[in-house]
Amino acid sequence: MTGLPPITDEELIAYLDGELPLERRQAIGAEIVRNGHLRRRLSAFDCDIGALKIAFDALANSAPAAEIGTRLDRGLGQGQFQRRAFLRWSAIAAFFLAGAGAGYIGGRYSGGEIYPDWHKAVADYQALYITETLSAIPEDMESRRREVTEAAARIGLPLQLETVQLPEFHLKRVQLLKFEGKPLVQFAYLGPQGIPVALCAIWIGRADSTLQVETFHGLPGAVWNKGGYGFIFIGAVPIEALRHAAALLEQRIGGLRLTDGLPGKKLENDGSEPPKPIKSIDNVILP
């Protein structure tokens, strides 16, 4: 045991939720690595928050939204909602196929910053991945090469397959997702021991920041910003393996000229627009 002050249950919760000051978080993180008793205490709080969010997102899908829409248009007159005993199966299925809907409302009243909530949304989504999610996808590097280029181009990033290929991490899939109306690209890997890991990137319009390893809802993730884009490399692999691979990605991406061909982009804008506007993006796996 080190000279750390006693670690309370509340601090362990705050550690899981990424709410501790940096110094204390790092100290507790190091102690967790050393101390089996502390790891067991931590695991007693490590419920599946990702499933919690998905369950409540599905519940939201069963809200009587059509009724309220009609009644808001009429000025919310008298009467009661139509009661429904159950959420329709088809609605739930469609919801899950849509990728668990990380974004909600857009426009003037959306409020809230995209940063850093997108990290947590990615963490929740990533927490649902298991080895089998990706293991059946065949190794087809020519397809991956095309997917990487196309997906990255949709958010204005000049990435190539070589940029995102990693030793000991097998690139299995590229997806375009959406967070609060903004396109988000996800590169999904199987890492050491078949553990799913993902690199995600999104335009956030923020200044550069160097790589830091943090915990997002219990899942370790390496985050950095470059050229107005936010990046996260996240998965339940050992921290050093995560950090090493993320540093390689940061170095490669840092060597790109991200502002080429993107006139008028401001790093300190409100983050409301990606550099290359797109008409629509669904949560789809690229062909």
């Binding site: 695991s43 419920c47 928050i49 499933a51």
Partner: peptide
């Protein structure tokens, strides 16, 4: 979180 972890089990994908 302690009650939920007890009721549902902990996330096997986290903190292996």
């Amino acid at each position: 979180r302690a009650k939920l972890t007890s009721a549902l089990g902990r996330n096997p994908m986290r903190h292996p």
